[in-house]
Design a protein around this nucleic acid. Sequence first.
DNA 1: AAGTGGTCTAGACCACTAG
DNA 2: TAGTGGTCTAGACCACTTT
Lengths: 250, 250
Amino acid sequence: MSESPVSQEPPIYRRIADGLRTRILAGELRDGDRLPGENTLMAEHAIARATARQALAVLINEGLAVPKRGSGVYVRLFKPIRRHGSRRLSREQWGQGRAIWDADTRGRPFTVDEVEIVRQPAAPDVAAALDADEVWVRRRRYLVDARPVQLASSYFPAEVVEGSAITLHDTGPGGVYARLGDLGLPPAHFTEEVRARMPRPPETDLLDLPGGTPVIEVSRTAFTASGRPVEVNRMVLDSAAYILQYDFDA
Amino acid sequence: MSESPVSQEPPIYRRIADGLRTRILAGELRDGDRLPGENTLMAEHAIARATARQALAVLINEGLAVPKRGSGVYVRLFKPIRRHGSRRLSREQWGQGRAIWDADTRGRPFTVDEVEIVRQPAAPDVAAALDADEVWVRRRRYLVDARPVQLASSYFPAEVVEGSAITLHDTGPGGVYARLGDLGLPPAHFTEEVRARMPRPPETDLLDLPGGTPVIEVSRTAFTASGRPVEVNRMVLDSAAYILQYDFDA
DNA sequence: AAGTGGTCTAGACCACTAG
DNA sequence: TAGTGGTCTAGACCACTTT
């Protein structure tokens, strides 16, 4: 080619990506619509395959498009669940035998799998947070509409919960928080730490995340009224599936 | 080459990325350390340039590495600010003439730039949230240690704040919330919506984000004691710079 | 001047999906 | 079977950083 590069404008792949992004954000291309593929872009812009791929990669990494092998690249959907940070953990929820999760999905079908319950030595940070060397861990994965949306690991001081239903698959009405209440240690205060980052391989697989999808990491510690930590819950959420809501007063 | 592909194992670029990731997460390669570059990987693994690039791109998109042109690819740093969702907005903060931001940075130097204050028609979602057609908007960018970490746009019902210091660059002691108090509309309740996504071009530039860095979107609405919405604040945070903390009771 | 990452070309073979 | 995206090779020129 040897076209004068002018070099002050963005590279070809960026200009192509910009054009497609504009059409997506303007609503001209909608959820689930098919984008022009590699071959189309090569022909339309007279570019090499790698350059066309690079343009599509921009949109994929922005989470605006999803590639489907053998089929095409498609505009991506975003239909989040609203997760209420405070309301969902009110005493009324678990005090009346309802699972916390019900507060989020409001009727939408959800399932839990990959349940694993083990007793093990606590990792340093968990040990520090719970002031315990041994912990019971409850690991699970949540799916809504058959789609995985969250990984969660709950840690409990082993000596405290040993022998309770917290170490069983079926924790009974109200779940683990109701059981902590039975033990005389009802959670009264929570603190949640929230951060976002890109997923790493095990998470990408377990949550079935396409490129360009960050995860939200929520680490929650539950305290009794006297300030004793009784649970640490580490969650990894598909960011495309969630909006977190927090309410508080001045 | 024509090596038997075996095809059941991951592609070359993935294996290389996996190896480097393991070394990073194990602490063998530390914050700021230089990774083997394209040329090194080409030589070590006898691969083409594009394949080496692809391997490094994996780590960059995971936010574990940052490329510096002309120099190399480096392991990435993560030194977040802890942002207290509730404490920072307590009445004591702005009631005593302190800027809210002080609650976050705790002495670390911060600056504000790109300040823009305009009156304009409200976008549909803001109009709905504030029940107002015209709004005053305060846009700004926050920098900590000379690094941009947050973009923020605050919206106020125009008729309410017209003529107050909220429409000026210097809002006076206690900031805009104290001024709302002066107007007889002190914020009493807040609701924050949090989500994460990959940044789009204007944000990438303004926050100077390297690849693989999601943003956290926080949309906060402030209400008076009587439930009247008086402010909508939309923030975009560099996810590598922040941990959000929320405290609440059962 | 040498080395680095950024962009791009022109091919190739593969696995997968769809009509 | 034809078309799609996924992986890979073997080159090239550029702008930038470092020495």
